[in-house]
Nucleic acid binder design. Structure first.
Length: 311
DNA sequence: CACACGTGGGC
DNA sequence: TGCCCAAGTGT
């Protein structure tokens, strides 16, 4: 049984909640969104589905403020999927700059190529077709279908998960990995009406991004503070297993980052010696470079030269 | 399912 | 000063 099917106190439930669980959350959150939503370029009508899709790739684990300038350059240079598909993948990696996780750039390029081949150059509206594209998982498929095409999907990102964890489940943080219970809850909370569902998806996400933040949440600005289970329980601290921190210093990831930074800046093939300078320890350095080549982020050339992938 | 995968800003 | 966090995906 989910929290939603828990027996309600007699007469306590809103009459409409029987058919629309969570209905009492929809209006306050959507009204709040109407007033406080940020004016982000990918939310404007002219962004189109491609703009939405590009933004979703870039926003996977990267903050809005850092995405903004790269997004603008990207859309100006490659206004349609076919424009990106016509470029070398290395150009996508270069234009990705310092957004991090450059495999996303490669996958976005691959997705553009697949869209050009399989979908006539138009970002598909079908969830399953979106999911089949490289770099698009459960979240991004739902986000593009919902934000770009107004469809009714549970869009479950880290913001929404946190909002639901607090407002509905009454805990400070969601589980480390998305659970079946969370998906079930998200589906149950989805407004029936397609238009409203899409609005709800964007609104609940924005609430998590701006108000119901991971740290220093602003309950005084929250439109559903009076209904929030976590707040009503006096905001108990997270218990469960500690949320795994991400290590970085000294890892292969750091080495990869340095190697790729050199190649992004270079506009002709780079000799091995130039790459050797970014990291002292030779075994780890070689492993990192091999990894980049295996991932298709770096192309080795005869004579110990390297460059971003041209094919 | 746990882990790898970049980067930079906030406290 | 570090630790935590940021619109996840693929293996």
């Amino acid at each position: 049984m989910t929290a939603l099917t828990k027996p309600q106190p007699d007469g306590a439930a809103d009459p409409s909640s029987e058919h629309a669980p969570g209905a009492s959350l929809h209006s306050p959150v959507i009204d709040w969104f109407d007033e406080h939503a940020r004016d982000l370029p990918w939310r404007r009508p002219e962004a189109g589905a491609w703009g939405v899709m590009v933004s979703e790739f870039m926003l996977q684990q990267t903050p809005v403020n850092r995405v903004l300038p790269v997004y603008e350059q990207w859309l100006a240079r490659w206004p349609r999927p076919a424009d990106l598909a016509a470029e070398a993948p290395g150009e996508a990696v270069r234009a990705w700059g310092r957004l991090g996780y450059p495999r996303r750039a490669l996958r976005l390029h691959g997705a553009a190529a697949a869209i050009t081949e399989r979908h006539g150059g138009d970002v598909p509206a079908d969830h399953a077709q979106l999911l089949a594209l490289p770099g698009i998982g459960e979240y991004t498929a739902a986000a593009v279908a919902s934000f770009a095409y107004g469809q009714r999907h549970a869009v479950l990102d880290t913001n929404v998960r946190r909002v639901f964890a607090r407002a509905v489940t009454g805990v400070q943080y969601p589980p480390n990995a998305t659970t079946a219970a969370e998906r079930r809850l998200a589906r149950a909370l989805l407004p029936e009406d397609e238009r409203t569902a899409a609005r709800w998806a964007a609104a609940s996400m924005e609430l998590g991004a701006l108000v119901c933040t991971a740290k220093n949440e602003s309950c005084h600005r929250c439109p559903i503070a009076s209904q929030c289970a976590w707040r009503l329980a006096d905001k108990p601290a997270h218990d469960g297993p500690p949320r795994r921190g991400q290590t970085y210093a000294g890892t292969d990831r750091q080495v990869r980052g340095r190697l790729l930074a050199v190649l992004r800046e270079a506009h002709s093939p780079v000799p091995q010696a130039a790459l050797d300078r970014v990291w002292q320890e030779p075994v780890q350095r070689a492993r990192a470079l091999d990894g980049l080549v295996a991932d298709g982020l770096v192309e080795p050339l005869p004579g110990g030269l390297y460059r971003l992938p041209m094919t």
